[in-house]
Simulated scan of single mutants.
Amino acid sequence: MLNFMTPGSGAVKPLSLEAHEAWTRRVSQAGCLVEPWRCDLSSGAFVVGSRTLAVLGLRRNPCGIIDLVRAYDEGDRSTILNILERATESSSSFCFSTTIRSGTGHPSPLYCIGNSTLRERGAEGSLEGVFALPETGKLSA
């Protein structure tokens, strides 16, 4: 487990490319598979990487926030939704960690690192970042 994120924890900071890059570097160095994701705030549609989609047990891309959150540990869901909501209030850098169950039922960490970029007119903008999962062989989809 990475020491900067334990399951159910997270952070929201003012938009900072340095924070995003440092967090992403740490998950890469920890031996995680890193896949990009993106969410268009006007539609609420998330597009995630194929490995992440499979591990989360999702069948279609794009997917919605409810589809993603259902795959997360129930105890972490409100924290994660709060982080994402705060990230849509102002351009931010954010991260969170949760536990998911692989196809075999074994728990595994999932890390999310992202940025929100908002336009002046309400719900326009995007969230984008990476999901990080243990490398192939350490988690079965």
Rank of each mutant, 00 (worst) to 15 (best):
M1K: 08
T6A: 07
P7T: 05
L15E: 03
E18Q: 09
A19N: 02
W23T: 04
W23R: 05
W23V: 05
R26P: 04
R26H: 10
R26Y: 02
A30C: 02
W37G: 01
R38F: 15
R38D: 13
C39Y: 07
D40E: 14
L41T: 03
L41D: 00
S43W: 06
G44A: 04
F46K: 12
F46Y: 04
V48A: 15
L53F: 06
R59F: 12
G64R: 14
G64I: 11
I65E: 15
I66N: 11
V69C: 05
R70A: 09
G75Q: 09
D76S: 13
D76H: 15
R77Q: 14
R77G: 00
S78N: 12
I80V: 11
T88F: 10
E89S: 10
C95G: 05
C95Y: 00
F96D: 13
G105L: 06
G105C: 06
L110Y: 04
C112Q: 10
I113V: 09
R119G: 13
G122D: 15
G125F: 03
L127K: 00
L127W: 00
E128P: 00
E128K: 11
E128C: 08
G129W: 04
G129H: 03
A132L: 08
P134D: 03
L139R: 12
S140Q: 12
